[in-house]
Design a protein around this nucleic acid. Sequence first.
DNA 1: ATATTAACTCGTCAGGGGTG
DNA 2: CACCCCTGACGAGTTAATAT
Length: 286
Amino acid sequence: MSEGSSPNALESSRGPSISVVQVSIPNQPVQMQSVIQSHVQPSVIHATRQTVPTIQVVRVAPVEDDMSDDSDGKKRREILSRRPSYRKILNELSSPVSVSRIDEESNSSQSQDGESEDAASNLTANSLHYQQTPGTFQINADGTMTQGLQTLTMTNASPTSTTAVTAGATIVQYATGPDGQHYYIPVGNTGTMQAYQIATSGTLPQGVVMTTTGGSIGSPPQLGEEAARKRELRLLKNREAARECRHKKKEYVKCLENRVAVLENQNKTLIEELKALKELYCQKEG
DNA sequence: ATATTAACTCGTCAGGGGTG
DNA sequence: CACCCCTGACGAGTTAATAT
C-alpha cells in the first residue's frame, strides 16, 4: 500500500496550500465543530471526515503550477514531507494568547470543557494512559494479575529473556495465562495496565508464526519464536503508539476548539466595545 | 424485524524524521 | 546508517440511526 495510491494522496499533496479549513456543522455538538488552522495536517481533515457530516473548505490558497503534475512521485514525496508532530503543535498552542483578557475568558469558557487544557498540557510528557477496559489487568498484592475472573500469574523471570524494554520506561513482560494463552504485559507501571494477548494460530496476523513454549518463561527462545516475538513486540509498540497518537490528535482538536471559542469570545467583546465607543463618540459629537 | 448506512474505533502497514 | 518513534492511510469490525 503506497501513499500515492491513497485517495487522499492528492489532497495531501495540496495540503500545505490550504490556509484555513472550517468544519461547520449545524446542530452538531460543539465538540464536533472545529476550525483547523493552517498548520493542521491535511489528513486531519480526513480524520474529521469520519466524525463529521460535512466539511466546508472556506479558503484555499492557489496551488502552484508545478504542483499540478500529480504523476511525479518524487515531488509528491517532497510535498508530503512531515509537518510538526501534534506534540510540537500542542506545545506551541499551549503558549499563552497575547491579550490578557483572553485568559479570563478562556477560564470561563474552558470550565465548561474542564479537562481539555489539562489533558493537552499533559501531552507534553511521555505519559501513557491505560484505560480500564474489559481486557485490562490489575496487579494484585500477591503479584498475580487479574483480568475479570481470570488470574494471570506473573513468574519472576529473568529480565533478559522475558522482559523487553519498549519506548521510554515502558516494559513488557512475557507471561502465560491460565488458559494457556501468552501475553505481553506492561510492567513497572502503577494503576491499571493493559495486557496484550499474543495471537494464537487462529488469529495471528499474516506472516506471523507463533510457536507455543508451554509457558516456560525464561527458557531459551527458539529462532522462529524469537522472530515472532520481535514482531509481536514491534506490533505492540506500534499499537500503543497509534493509540497515543490518536489520543493526542483528539486533544489537539479539542485544544483548537477551545482556542476558537476563546477567540470568538474575544472578538465578540471587542466588537461590543467598539460599538459602545462609537456611540459615546457620536453622543459627544452631537 | 431486518437491511442499510454512517460514524466510529482499532490494529496494522508504510514511510518520513530524529538520534546515537 | 541502523534503529526507533510518530503519524497518515487503510481495512475490518462494531454500533447506532434510519429506511423498508
